[in-house]
């Protein structure tokens, strides 16, 4: 279980998060939604410790992460896999080297063992015969897949994805959603996904947290959201719903 308690985050004179508390369901997909600039990325960065909250704390299975020692943070990060908004694959490394990297840093495995693990992970996301290619030689969808392979190679307990299907065509985006859903069902990772794509939310979210203006405006399940009694949330979903009706 990942839990955030009363998180505030301020940049200079701009308060981006204004007291967010939430519990992310263990072993399931939790989607954070909200319009662009609402603070989804900042919240996720605070959860993994790339940003320090101005106030508040983050807990991983009741272990307090915020403000803990670097060494302890590293212990927890060993259990985290993260897919960044643009993939964030290392340009100077091949796909295989990218996928091996977390094993290099976190484990004492032999090289052959690491390669084997990486290849299995790449297969799992549907990438074969691209091990020796560089990220720039892959399509956007393949880069996202490689980023997911790198995130899951060390069997993380927690998986975080920042807009995993942004910048992809709807069909490829749907495939990535499908892939994440399958992986989470298989490995039971506590997963947080940032998205503003309501299609993904309806397809894969077990729990939804709606952020608006730095506050948590609504939370609930996939079935409750359509009838949610929250004006801002309805406004946020409206373009999507009217589009759905037309089709």
């Amino acid at each position: 279980m990942v839990e955030v308690k009363d998180i505030f985050k301020r940049f200079d004179d701009k308060e981006v998060l204004k007291g967010i508390s939430a519990v992310f369901v263990p072993g399931k997909i939790n989607c954070t939604i909200g319009k662009s600039g609402s603070g989804k990325t900042v919240l996720l960065k605070t959860i993994v410790g790339l940003e320090n909250p101005t106030k508040g704390s983050v807990f991983y299975d009741d272990r307090e992460f915020t403000g803990s020692k670097t060494k302890f943070k590293k212990e927890i990060r060993r259990e985290i896999g993260m897919v960044f908004q643009g993939g964030a694959l290392f340009d100077s490394m091949t796909v295989l080297e990218n996928t091996i990297f977390p094993l290099d840093m976190f484990t004492e495995m032999k090289t052959e063992e690491k390669i084997e693990r990486a290849v299995v992970s790449l297969k799992r996301v549907g990438l074969e015969n691209v091990e020796q290619k560089y990220p720039s030689e892959l399509s956007g969808g393949m880069q996202k897949r490689a980023a997911i392979a790198r995130a899951i190679v060390n069997n993380p307990k927690y998986l975080f994805c920042d807009e995993p299907n942004s910048g992809l065509d709807p069909i490829t985006a749907g495939k990535i959603d499908e892939l994440i859903k399958d992986i989470v069902e298989e490995f039971k990772m506590t997963t947080i996904i940032n998205t503003h794509d309501m299609n993904s939310v309806f397809d894969i979210a077990d729990k939804i947290i709606f952020i608006h203006n730095g506050y948590k405006f609504w939370e609930g399940g996939r079935d409750e959201i359509i009838n949610a009694d929250n004006e801002e949330l309805q406004i946020f979903m409206k373009p999507f719903l009217s589009f759905k009706h037309k089709n």
Binding site: K45, V48, L50, K74, R77, R78, I80, M82, F84, Q85, G86, A88, L89, F90, D91, F101, P102, M105, F106
Partner: peptide
């Protein structure tokens, strides 16, 4: 700079580097 804006530096930090 490119590694920073494409979040490769963040990715390194997440991997304990």
């Amino acid at each position: 700079g490119t590694m920073r804006i494409t979040q490769q530096i963040d990715a390194l930090e997440i991997m304990g580097v």
